[in-house]
Design a protein around this nucleic acid. Structure first.
Lengths: 168, 168
DNA sequence: GCACGAAATGTTATAACGTTGCATATCGAA
DNA sequence: TTCGATATGCAACGTTATAACATTTCGTGC
């Protein structure tokens, strides 16, 4: 492991199961504060995402919710909930997977870097202020105004690499 | 405009019309060198993409090629050509648009940053070695091996911003 | 409580994007 | 020219996402 100071200016979060209830509480509190409805569907969608621990597709959410509610839901229902959760910063879309993850940094402006393991499917979310600054510099040179950043780095995570090394 | 030295370590390319024939020549030469077939379909797909000047979807390519060939082509035909062109580094997929652009840096390992204007649709491709180094550092700390980078920055380009400023 | 507008959800259909599987044709080298 | 490898044709299907409109629920002022 690298020395601690190299990651001092970054926070790092693994989408672990332990974060489920905390993530939900946070979202609920934020909605209340903003005067928005944290409805059962929205809550359930977010809950499924935290429980999944991996990027999860809209149609898989649809199936899970169908089970949970005991009746079939339709795509617009799920997509509307996802749209709301994204607007509020509770959820981020993983473009390279057509899938969604609960956001570990809802406070910040979604300038996160995602490391996505192609083998196990896990995603790791990192904030990297220096990279943001570099992109802003490029943007300045181009006269470009950045509204949204999508940074997805695909490859193999530490645990999959070590499994590979020990002979699969 | 910012001082030149801030972009010294980067190349910058606008997907301009003038680059069409050069892009095609380069692809053809590279295929010959690699012993690969630069067939009419592959060539036509790449040509459409260079001519478009913007990220272009597979089904729009399909329509354009249908016109050009005077008969309808099927989705697999286009997707197979796109797959080939991506493998050879002539084309990059823009994940946030489900679209494709001809690659301005086919020699490098696709570690490009795309600035994509939401208003006019144009895309700008930039190489930023420093950002790459930062991500590699993060990856090192995570024990992660990066195989593929997707970096797409959405917003408003200089010309659209200036149009906006002068009263739409 | 109730009336009313705003917000959320239900429902149906369809658009947009991408893949599978197998048949046929073309290329390139022995 | 024969044969394997590569490329294309083609039909059907799978997946992801949205449009359009009806209905229900929520929150507020009376």
């Amino acid at each position: 492991m690298a020395p601690v100071n190299t990651i001092l200016d970054r926070k790092l979060v693994f989408h672990s199961l332990g974060a489920v209830s905390e993530g939900l509480r946070m979202a609920e509190a934020t909605c209340q504060q903003r005067g928005l409805q944290f409805t059962e569907i929205r809550r359930s969608v977010l809950e499924c995402m935290w429980q999944s621990g991996q990027p999860i597709g809209a149609y898989e959410l649809l199936r899970m919710l169908g089970q949970k509610f005991g009746r079939p839901l339709s795509p617009p229902t799920v997509y509307r909930a996802l749209e709301f959760l994204q607007e509020q910063g509770f959820v981020t879309r993983i473009e390279t997977k057509n899938a969604f993850v609960p956001c570990a940094f809802p406070d910040r402006d979604h300038a996160c870097v995602f490391f996505i393991c192609d083998q196990c499917g896990n995603s790791f979310e990192v904030q990297n202020a220096k990279a943001e600054a570099l992109f802003e510099e490029d943007a300045g040179n181009l006269g470009f105004r950045i509204d949204k950043r999508v940074i997805e780095l695909q490859g193999a995570c530490a645990s999959c690499l070590s499994l590979e090394a020990t002979g699969n």
